[in-house]
Design a protein around this nucleic acid. Structure first.
Lengths: 219, 219
DNA sequence: AAAAAAATTTAGATTTGACTAAAATAATTT
DNA sequence: AAATTATTTTAGTCAAATCTAAATTTTTTT
């Protein structure tokens, strides 16, 4: 299905709004997209005619199966790009959203597939939101601060909640970045510090305060 | 300067055409952009009013200083993305142009800067075309097949002119990829094979046929 | 259940970019 | 240098996506 940038933005917003309410209404979508209700109505007709949307006038709307699949593809691209921008380019996680909003509309299947592989098939984006897989399945995972992560489990670093340069220096020193493998071996009750193993490096000890800012999910 | 996708495509095409002829004419631009002369005229007026274009009706046109700078920015983005797609995602060099045509319109300055750094500030794209630097300067470099590259000079691999899986296997074996450092130590006249040093690996010998497909530029 | 308020849709305009057909201008040929 | 041909521009449409203002439908209030 070939979709315009605008259609894709509508689909994405409807997808997000319909998670909360059974039927989405025109005004809330207009609010979400920063546009006017009349413009929304126009687009709803178009999406209905493209058989992406269940829509009866005056009664609200929601995406059908096809629409949901399209939404998941767009969200997948968005989150993969966010992951790329943070983990590879080292951009701050609060700056990547706007750029990913543009990149997500480049829809080459091969590109998305190769990008996913290159990034190591990440499951969560840097905000901790799940990245739908190729089939549109959402991994049911949550990220947890490293100090709350269970012992001896393989974790993957999904985000860092402190983007200061001091934090960066420490991350760099320990060789920790988005996507790194990490395992907690034990904790010391005295000051809450943790012994951890990072990828293939020898085990080391990190402070509790440091660990609180490192978010991890179950591999 | 904020430019629409369409405006950017016009600017890019004018830039390319004006390299050959002093003044660009409407029909050739229409041909280049796969559109009609009348549409071109409309856009010329717009670009003139945006003070990007020197244009007198019926007499041809060319970009002014501002226009040239904008063109170079777009070309820079295009070629950096092509480099990314080939060197990092491993896409075939004849497939990346179409995708880069879309990616090039994402114009965040920070994105371009970080991408450039991440890629190691490449000077040529995978087709051997120069990548303008941040200031819009075009490096004056040409790629040469490795078998014709001078001895003992540091070269950077810029493209591979044979994208078969057999070739890929060999490249992989030798640890050669787009962006690799390479130096020719000597050649053997008997069969034209070359002793080369690749990045920090120990020197090794490669066949002349292999070297003919590896393009390199002077570092 | 009628009136008032809120939400939604329609009608008509606007902008961007493209198109066709006709008119204007430039270049070429005789 | 006049006529023909080629190129370019103008005039008028069209489609996508937006908007405002008015009309319609639903919901809420009295």
């Amino acid at each position: 299905m070939k979709l315009s940038e605008s259609e894709e933005n509508y689909i994405k917003s409807i997808y997000k709004l319909q998670a909360n309410t059974k039927k989405v209404n025109t005004n809330s979508l207009a609010g979400h997209l920063n546009t006017k209700a009349a413009s929304v109505t126009d687009m709803l007709k178009k999406l209905k005619s493209k058989k992406i949307l269940e829509y009866e006038r005056y009664y609200g709307f929601r995406l059908n199966e096809t629409g949901n699949k399209e939404a998941l593809k767009i969200i997948r691209r968005h989150r993969l790009w966010e992951f790329f921008l943070v983990s590879k380019l080292g951009m701050a996680w609060d700056k990547v959203h706007a750029i990913a909003e543009e990149l997500e509309h480049v829809s080459s299947l091969e590109l998305v597939k190769k990008l996913d592989e290159y990034l190591g098939r990440p499951k969560l984006d840097p905000h901790g939101d799940p990245i739908p897989d190729e089939k549109g399945e959402m991994p049911e995972l949550k990220q947890v601060a490293l100090n709350l992560f269970p012992f001896k489990k393989n974790g993957i670093v999904s985000s860092i909640s402190n983007q200061t340069s001091e934090m960066m220096k420490m991350l760099d020193h320990y060789g920790i970045g988005i996507g790194s493998q990490i395992k907690v071996l034990k904790t010391f009750d005295f000051d809450g510090s943790l012994q951890v193993k990072i990828s293939k490096q020898p085990a080391c000890v990190i402070s509790s305060g440091f660990a609180q800012n490192i978010f991890v999910y179950d591999d």
